[in-house]
Computed example of a mutant assay.
Amino acid sequence: MKINLIGVPLHLGADKFGCNLAPKTYREANIVNLIESLGFEVFDCGDVNVLETDEKRKYEHHPNLKYLHEVVDANNKLAQKVYESISNGNFPLILGGDHSLGLGSIAGASKSIKNLGVVWIDAHGDINTDITSPTGNIHGMPLAASFGIGHEALVNVYENRVKIKEENVFHIAGRDLDEGEVELIKGSKGQFYTMDKVKKLGIKNVVKDMLNYFKNKVDAIHVSFDLDSIDSLFAPGTGTPVKDGLSVEDAKYILESLALSGMMCSLDIVELNPVLDKDNKTLDIAMYLIKNTLSKLKYGLENRLTA
């Protein structure tokens, strides 16, 4: 199994410059060498091409969805790359870029894996729609669109179908939720473990609940990790940092547990903004988490094959 690096230099979903520079920043930090040092063969698939536009055209295709055409186009391209990677028996590591790329990564993964589970680790719900969103930023909408809620252009990225069952979603670390998201969560069939719940239960119990929830329920799990899930005290280099989040060790434990489970088939690392980072603190955290997670992935796959 190869690790396929897929860069997504997309910031239009966040409407904030900087996270589009993240894929380049990871490569300059020698991420390929880091992964190869773990014993993996790495193939860098390059970057998804993001259409150029300008701020004057942000509402050109919808009155409350910024850069709709460009975000959908980038996600269609990403979905194809993710689908090809998994179909060839490889593991796609998607480096973003803003979290709107979750539309494409889930679309591609769910074409390869029909009964896909999703673990979404994020300070934000990302289940807004064009109606509920106070900003019109599409990076706050990919999870809702993936289970069929929201504007048809987002719901039907890549293929005209619902990508995942709502009950196959497990969201961790939410603490900055919009009013419309709170209402959707109340009626949701998914699992939403806010930071209040994480602190009450403890991270080990949250992970235990997560793994038990997915056991015999899904065929594989796509993991989408937003760096803003980590407390802003530790990870300042994101577009929308939020305090009182996960510790770095909490994030490490969640990701390594998923890797060791043998169920993880793909991974997003999103919202690194080098422009906002301080002394590469957030980059260093991201590299640390990637290295540790992939080091455990090999054991997880071996355990699954011998189970």
Rank of each mutant, 00 (worst) to 15 (best):
L51N: 12
D277N: 11
N64Y: 12
A220D: 00
G136M: 09
N216W: 09
L101I: 14
H99S: 05
L95D: 12
R57K: 14
T25L: 02
D244L: 09
L21G: 05
Y299V: 09
F170Q: 01
V72R: 10
P241N: 06
K298M: 12
G108H: 02
A259E: 10
D250P: 08
C265I: 08
V72T: 12
R161Q: 08
K217Q: 00
P23E: 10
Q80Y: 14
A109Q: 01
E36H: 07
V155Y: 05
S188E: 06
G46I: 06
N212A: 07
A220Q: 00
D176I: 00
I3W: 06
S112D: 06
N303M: 10
I31Q: 06
N160P: 04
L289P: 02
I285L: 08
G148I: 01
G300A: 03
M195A: 02
I106F: 01
G237T: 10
P23T: 10
N20Q: 13
V275C: 03
N205Y: 06
P23I: 11
L283M: 11
N90S: 11
D284G: 03
K199Y: 07
I221P: 00
F40C: 03
G97F: 07
M1V: 11
K298W: 06
G202L: 09
F147D: 04
D196N: 15
D196V: 09
A259Y: 07
N30I: 01
T240Q: 06
C265T: 14
G89E: 10
L289A: 01
Y288D: 14
G239I: 05
Y253V: 06
G13F: 04
N30D: 15
A286S: 11
E271K: 05
R304T: 07
S100L: 07
E256K: 15
I269E: 08
Q80T: 15
I31S: 07
S100Y: 09
S232K: 08
A144E: 02
M264E: 01
N292Q: 13
I94V: 15
H124A: 04
H222R: 02
A307E: 13
N168M: 00
W120C: 06
A235V: 14
A220C: 02
L305R: 14
K208C: 02
I6D: 04
G104T: 10
F147H: 07
T132K: 08
K200G: 00
E52R: 14
E181T: 08
K56S: 15
L21E: 11
L294M: 06
D250C: 07
C265V: 15
Q80V: 15
V275R: 10
S110A: 04
D176F: 08
D279W: 04
